[in-house]
Amino acid sequence: KAKLLVLLYAFVATDADTICIGYHANNSTDTVDTILEKNVAVTHSVNLLEDSHNGKLCKLKGIAPLQLGKCNITGWLLGNPECDSLLPARSWSYIVETPNSENGACYPGDLIDYEELREQLSSVSSLERFEIFPKESSWPNHTFNGVTVSCSHRGKSSFYRNLLWLTKKGDSYPKLTNSYVNNKGKEVLVLWGVHHPSSSDEQQSLYSNGNAYVSVASSNYNRRFTPEIAARPKVRDQHGRMNYYWTLLEPGDTIIFEATGNLIAPWYAFALSRGFESGIITSNASMHECNTKCQTPQGAINSNLPFQNIHPVTIGECPKYVRSTKLRMVTGLRNIPSIQYRGLFGAIAGFIEGGWTGMIDGWYGYHHQNEQGSGYAADQKSTQNAINGITNKVNSVIEKMNTQFTAVGKEFNNLEKRMENLNKKVDDGFLDIWTYNAELLVLLENERTLDFHDLNVKNLYEKVKSQLKNNAKEIGNGCFEFYHKCDNECMESVRNGTYDYPKYSEESKLNR
Score class of each variant (00 low, 15 high):
70 K>N: 10
231 A>K: 10
95 I>G: 02
89 A>F: 13
86 L>F: 00
27 N>S: 07
211 N>V: 13
118 R>A: 05
80 N>F: 00
214 V>H: 04
282 T>H: 11
63 I>M: 12
75 G>R: 01
103 N>V: 09
206 L>H: 08
224 R>N: 03
259 A>Y: 06
256 I>S: 09
112 I>D: 11
40 V>W: 12
255 I>P: 00
172 S>K: 00
254 T>H: 15
190 V>Q: 03
127 L>W: 15
138 S>Q: 14
110 D>A: 15
134 P>C: 02
111 L>I: 15
263 L>Q: 02
255 I>M: 15
232 R>H: 13
97 E>S: 08
10 A>C: 12
278 S>V: 12
56 K>P: 01
174 P>T: 06
66 L>F: 08
106 C>W: 12
149 V>D: 04
265 A>M: 09
275 G>A: 14
40 V>A: 06
7 L>H: 04
121 L>M: 10
257 F>M: 02
241 R>F: 02
270 F>C: 04
58 C>D: 05
92 W>R: 00
251 P>Q: 14
252 G>I: 00
176 L>W: 03
201 D>T: 07
118 R>S: 05
92 W>Y: 02
105 A>K: 00
211 N>D: 09
115 E>M: 09
157 S>E: 03
45 S>E: 05
181 V>A: 13
258 E>L: 00
177 T>F: 11
109 G>A: 06
226 T>E: 13
86 L>G: 03
90 R>Y: 13
21 I>K: 06
126 S>R: 13
153 H>E: 10
8 L>V: 11
179 S>M: 12
233 P>K: 13
279 G>K: 04
238 Q>F: 04
34 T>R: 03
200 S>R: 10
175 K>H: 14
13 A>W: 10
43 T>W: 09
263 L>N: 03
3 K>P: 13
120 Q>L: 09
200 S>T: 11
220 N>T: 13
146 G>R: 10
94 Y>D: 07
240 G>L: 02
117 L>A: 06
248 L>E: 01
28 S>L: 02
237 D>E: 14
212 A>I: 07
278 S>N: 15
237 D>R: 04
177 T>W: 11
196 H>R: 02
168 K>S: 13
182 N>R: 02
150 S>V: 07
21 I>P: 00
205 S>P: 00
251 P>E: 14
26 N>S: 08
135 K>G: 12
175 K>R: 07
36 L>N: 04
21 I>D: 14
10 A>R: 06
182 N>V: 03
238 Q>G: 01
21 I>F: 05
25 A>H: 02
116 E>H: 02
139 W>M: 11
120 Q>R: 14
69 G>D: 13
192 W>K: 11
197 P>A: 09
255 I>L: 15
51 D>T: 14
165 W>A: 03
117 L>Y: 07
248 L>V: 15
104 G>P: 07
40 V>M: 11
94 Y>F: 06
276 F>Y: 11
213 Y>P: 04
125 S>L: 15
271 A>W: 00
226 T>N: 07
116 E>L: 01
122 S>Y: 04
175 K>L: 14
221 Y>H: 14
